[in-house]
Design a protein around this nucleic acid. Structure first.
Lengths: 153, 153
DNA sequence: TACTTGGTTCTGTATTTGCAGAACCAAAAG
DNA sequence: CTTTTGGTTCTGCAAATACAGAACCAAGTA
């Protein structure tokens, strides 16, 4: 597959987006390439060539993506190459996990409430309120997915 | 206020949590300290002493937190010190913003769908499905807050 | 057997990050 | 005016990051 300027520019932007989420630059670019590539499956050396980076960098980035469960590879009979693809099928679990991660702050809020005195009841009250919302939010996550499923039919 | 070992250890854990979100270490520690401190308002030099860091580092971290709108300071008559506090009142807006941020991936998914061919319809279909969910999710965010408000009465 | 292919692991390095320390500045106090 | 207080800005550096390049390895090929 030949990448146009538009493709390349979009890959860069997807890369930067993922950098902001804490991933290393190349990992984000690879996600972009795997999203954009027509077949959805891209060989190791195609990644090296399209992104213009070293084999070692690609090897490390792919190991990371596989460890995170965001990427898998398949092989083909009579072909030693590995063809890498995103696990798009897992978007529900991945997204739910992200939501639960941001709600993790509740654990800390609750621990803080345990060690706080009553000297600033208003502050404590707002924290308690936030904690209650986070508890509510976590319970609502599966409900949200269920409602989406029904709405889609 | 004197910080116990438990306080200090909790501040560290809150710091690491925020580091994972992409903040620099000291910023996370300061958030922890402001959460734990009884009065909720902490002077500049108290931060320096409790966290054992330099004035310059604290100055930069506080500037960052204020720019992000997560922190404000107040002053007291006849006292030139600034007392810093978290904007706990803004947790709704902050949390909503975080949710919208993680849903931002939809923009990229849609752009990718525009440039993709039909050579892998199954992959495209899963992406479309994800995009639809993200659209649904964004609309549901305010609904979620409203339902929480009613439930709390 | 030696050679190629496909990828991994090791070593070194340019760049970036995160902070310390000192110089600095503005406002208040003496 | 000089000194002190409270905080900011500038300079420099130690450590971490992210990658290149080379050595390396296992499995297949000639």
């Amino acid at each position: 597959m030949i990448l146009t300027e538009r493709h390349k520019e979009l890959i860069e932007r997807i890369g930067v987006f993922h950098e902001h989420k804490g991933m290393q630059p190349l990992v984000g670019r690879i996600i972009g390439l795997l999203l954009i590539h027509e077949e959805g499956e891209v060989s190791f050396d195609e990644i090296v060539e399209h992104l213009g980076v070293s084999k070692s960098a690609v090897s490390n980035a792919l190991t990371f993506l596989q460890a995170k469960g965001r990427c898998v590879y398949s092989t083909r009979p009579g072909d030693r190459k590995r063809y890498f693809a995103l696990k798009m099928s897992d978007w529900r679990e991945d997204f739910a996990e992200e939501l639960e991660n941001i709600a993790e702050i509740q654990k800390f809020i609750d621990e803080v409430l345990e060690v706080r005195t009553d000297r600033n009841p208003e502050f404590n009250c707002k924290m308690k309120d936030f904690s209650n919302f986070l508890g509510f939010f976590k319970k609502e996550i599966p409900v949200l997915f269920e409602r989406f499923r029904r709405q889609q039919g």
